[in-house]
């Protein structure tokens, strides 16, 4: 039929144009990077079985981890407040309570052994030039180094919550939230969550003075962070729309993939934690996605019925015209 032929011609040209300006043009503008599934293939696998008891001794003692990191799960607060820590180290060292659940074990091991290498910031921290990473390498407590590191990782895993207990917000706050703010509040399961700053959730203040004090602290923290990173890491409120899931995942997996020489470290999250970070960014930047699917389905059903009636009406009216 002639009309169907015309429709086919219009459709072919439309789809061709779409293909050229969308998938094709974007493939030419941005190189495609495949995810490795957060396997961190460049890092050596853990070969030794860790002993958590011994690991605890090392973390608390010879490893000197708690000189900088808090472990709330063990009742140990951070040695410094966030702002002072950032002014000392550039960025606030994370609390280690959840590290065993959020980060890949072999990444943790590589990090303890040589932070600049595991974090992929050796271009910025070159020991031979005296540029020391603020986290010092662990050179061992006298025994087998790899065994000792395996013990420390086992300890961190033993105190960490189970994978399913890690919430999207926890994963984000620990892995990303000490550098990146999210100034959008968000509603999740009927509960309003405040906006996130690099020093934590922004509380509700009754007095303006208290709010200004808090904001001053945030600015002080950001100033230290800016000096450390070279630029203030961006607010991630709309990143799920501006970058999309694939970009964020492959970027987090290896920031050097896209920005050679960037100061952003590889943070070493495991695959589950990466999913949770994405979910958190969706909760913040695309919070109506479930509603969209639900309404979308209903509208499509309605429109199909409308189209059927429209076709029937046309047939009815045109019966006399042919």
């Amino acid at each position: 039929m002639k009309e169907l032929f015309i429709l086919a011609v219009v459709t072919v040209f439309t789809l061709l144009t779409y293909y050229l300006v969308e998938p094709f043009a974007h493939s030419q503008m941005h190189k495609h990077i495949e995810s490795e599934g957060f396997a961190y293939k460049d890092l050596p696998a853990l070969t030794k079985k860790g002993d958590a008891e011994h690991g605890k001794e090392l973390v608390m003692g010879a490893g000197a981890c708690v000189g900088c990191h808090g472990i709330k799960a063990e009742g140990m607060p951070a040695p410094m407040d966030a702002v002072t820590a950032a002014q000392s180290y550039g960025v606030n060292p994370p609390d280690l309570s959840t590290a065993g659940a959020i980060y890949e074990p072999k990444f943790l091991a590589a990090l303890i052994k040589n932070p600049a290498h595991a974090l992929m910031v050796e271009h910025k921290f070159d020991e031979s030039k005296g540029q020391m990473h603020p986290m010092t390498s662990f050179y061992g407590a006298g025994g087998d180094l790899d065994q000792e590191i395996a013990d420390m990782v086992a300890y961190l895993q033993s105190i960490a919550p189970k994978a399913e207990e890690v919430t999207p917000a926890m994963a984000f706050e620990n892995a990303c939230g000490r550098c990146h703010a999210i100034h959008y509040e968000y509603n999740l399961d009927g509960e309003l969550h405040p906006s996130w700053t690099q020093i934590g959730e922004k509380p509700v203040f009754k007095k303006k003075q208290d709010e200004l004090k808090f904001e001053t602290k945030v600015l002080d923290y950001q100033e230290a962070l800016k000096k450390y990173m070279g630029t203030l890491p961006p607010d991630l409120s709309m990143y799920i729309r501006s970058r999309g899931e694939h970009y964020i995942k492959t970027f987090v997996e290896n920031p050097q993939n896209y920005l050679k020489g960037t100061a952003m470290p590889r943070v070493g999250v495991n695959a589950e934690a990466a999913e949770k970070i994405i979910e958190h960014l969706e909760n913040v930047g695309d919070s109506k996605r479930h509603k969209r699917e639900e309404v979308g389905k209903n509208v499509m059903i309605y429109i199909f019925i409308f189209a059927i009636f429209a076709i029937l009406w046309k047939k009815e009216v045109w019966r006399d015209l042919h």
């Binding site: 409308f306 189209a307 009636f309 429209a310 009406w313 046309k314 009216v317 045109w318």
Partner: peptide, 11 residues
């Protein structure tokens, strides 16, 4: 009526 048929499919 023909317009509306096309509009229905377009929608």
């Amino acid at each position: 009526s023909k317009d509306m048929m096309v509009v229905g499919i377009y929608l």
